[in-house]
Design a binder for these strands. Structure first.
Lengths: 193, 193
DNA sequence: GTCTATACACCGATAGAC
DNA sequence: GTCTATCGGTGTATAGAC
């Protein structure tokens, strides 16, 4: 049933999802959906939770045995996320953009999003990347590649080809020793004025 | 009249713009809008052109007397664009995201977008940044900061504070001499494998 | 150009029978 | 749980009077 909702969102657009269309795909009438969801917003909410849970699973699989070397580990992480995000525009809009005005996930549905970000920052930390700003910059950098790819070259690879270079640029900027040791200390990161 | 459309888009959401609401704000009835626009899509199209034309004007003012020094010039450009983009979520969605399924600007409306990107690449080139991938990476980097700011900290400055650092990171990665001379040659940019 | 009137389709949501 | 019927509302767009 959520699968049907995702299909509609992908085909018609996230905001153009309708109860009638979802119901039809599962062989039901629109009012019957209210036996499963309290409202249309509740469907979005469940989709939001499912999307972040999916990422959590993809990430758990992929991050389990990351290379100890910082640069290689970040490249793998970046590609995993990039492929996941780019493969579904509607899902990415629900997860990371304010496409639905006023939509706010419930605390229960927001939880997997928090876990996913936590998993990212934990993994970064294990590889020597510490500090909120370092994480924020990584999020913006990889997210920017995803958004550019989806907006300007959907189905192509114009920004995907920049993922490795972007990660290298980022690691160079961190200015930590790239030894694979979790305890890197040297920090010559440039300070913004 | 376009101003009324922008107001509705900002308040209700880009996709939630309705002819009735726009008409009401200009003291008209919905059908009267068809004297000015052939369809709702034509309104979006005019808004798209206006948005990119605005950026073109802001950019022309700002890029006229940029510092010759690469790093400083890119910082100014980045802040100019960041402030412009972050100040209007609906406008940014129309310009840079696929929020309206199936919307494609007409060639006439797409023209100012091409001009704006051309202005960017010309300016970058004048400061020694050449190559499509260099431009693409800049677009993704600054766009990523914008999108992160709008999605995760609307009204705040959590990613705005990273603009200067991001530009420095980018310039360092270009690996060109930062002398203010338009003819920088050294290129030790890392190649993705 | 703007109006009234209206067509036609669609929306989310509820009531109540089965 | 699922249905039919329906509510009250919205949407874009057109016809034709003024």
């Amino acid at each position: 049933m959520l699968a049907a909702a995702w299909a509609v969102a992908r085909e018609q657009g996230l905001a153009q999802l309708t109860l009638r269309e979802v119901a039809e795909r599962v062989g039901m009438r629109a009012p019957s959906l209210y036996s499963h969801f309290a409202s249309k917003n509740a469907i979005y909410d469940a989709m939001y939770a499912q999307a972040w849970t999916e990422l959590l699973e993809v990430g758990a699989d992929s991050y389990e045995n990351l290379p100890s070397e910082l640069r290689e580990a970040l490249r793998m992480m970046a590609h995993t996320y990039f492929d996941f995000a780019v493969s579904d525009l509607a899902r990415n809009q629900l997860m990371n953009q304010r496409t639905l005005p006023g939509f706010e996930p419930t605390p229960e549905s927001y939880a997997p999003a928090v876990s996913a970000l936590r998993m990212l920052s934990d993994t970064l930390e294990q590889h020597g990347v510490r500090g909120q700003e370092d994480v924020d910059l990584y999020v913006a950098l990889i997210g920017g590649l995803v958004d550019s790819q989806l907006a300007n070259d959907p189905g192509g690879d114009r920004w995907e080809r920049l993922v490795d270079r972007a990660v290298d640029m980022y690691v160079d900027n961190l200015g930590i020793e790239d030894t694979g040791d979790a305890d890197a200390i040297t920090d010559r990161r440039r300070e913004a004025p």
